[in-house]
Amino acid sequence: MPVLLLAAAIVWVFVFFLPGDPARLIAGGASADPGVLESIRQEWGLDRPAPVQFFHYLGKLVRFDLGTSYVQRRPVAAIIADHFPPTFILAVAAVLLAAGGGLILGSLAALYRGRLVDSLVLGLALLGTSLPVFWLGLILMLLFASGLEWLPVLGYGMDGAFLPFTSIRLPEWDHLVLPAVTLSLVSMGAIARITRASLIEAGTAEFLQTARAKGASRARVFARHTLQNALIPVVTVIGLDFAGLLGGAVATEYVFSWPGLGKTIVRAIGLRDLPVVEGGVLFLTAIFVLVSLAVDLAYLYLDPRVHYTHVG
């Protein structure tokens, strides 16, 4: 909670000092009637002194009210509810691909350490991490959508099914492939490298000799002892990647016209739709905190030595 309050305050201050006048944009931008401008400032409370505006904002926040968009004139919570599901779906798909691909590639590299496979994996990992995602997305689009016509070029689709009992519309799944693959390639490299490094490190640990001496098979040693011990840093990387992806993969959303939250917040900055910026960033902070917490809890299962005890 203190993290969130601090985040709320920081975001508010940043947003408040952005150059440009939101009332001005609502009033028509290029030419604005001074009378209309004045009454818009009153309508949204923009004419009040900064501390009053800040405490008003905090007051609403503790009542879980994120305010109303200046531009869309509907609750910020409704806007987040519209745009978070696409972001979440894309992040889950990307992280599953990245984790799957990264674990397999990393394990292969560790198993064949120093051989061709190892060098190939390391090379690909380096490439994946260093290619700009914007460029990568366009190349994949040109190749698989424009060229081979296997997949749609962009978009979320218009006819996806609704999630039962909600107004959340799922994407048409073929539309999900390219953005998810684009995003996953970036994290896959990092996951492959950390998997390889941890496996190699765990593989040389003394407890493995003990296990082998007790008569365990090679496969059992790998699955039960090596992999489990190697997974802790891998899970950390995957978790942080997932949290980062939930923060909105703006470049990917932009290239593939994915209606996610990241792009929505960036557009809101451009429009000086301040409540959407504040609410959106705060929401993402909360998500980040939650995912980090989930990663910490995952350690409990992976490493019996880790205990969380209440101190003080």
Binding site: L4, F64, F88, I89, V92, I168, L170, F283, A286, L290
Partner: peptide
């Protein structure tokens, strides 16, 4: 806020 996001997470995961 936190409550809300947990709900969304729980909802979506099995469906996707």
């Amino acid at each position: 806020m936190q409550k809300r996001s947990v709900l969304v997470l729980a909802f979506l995961a099995p469906a996707i």
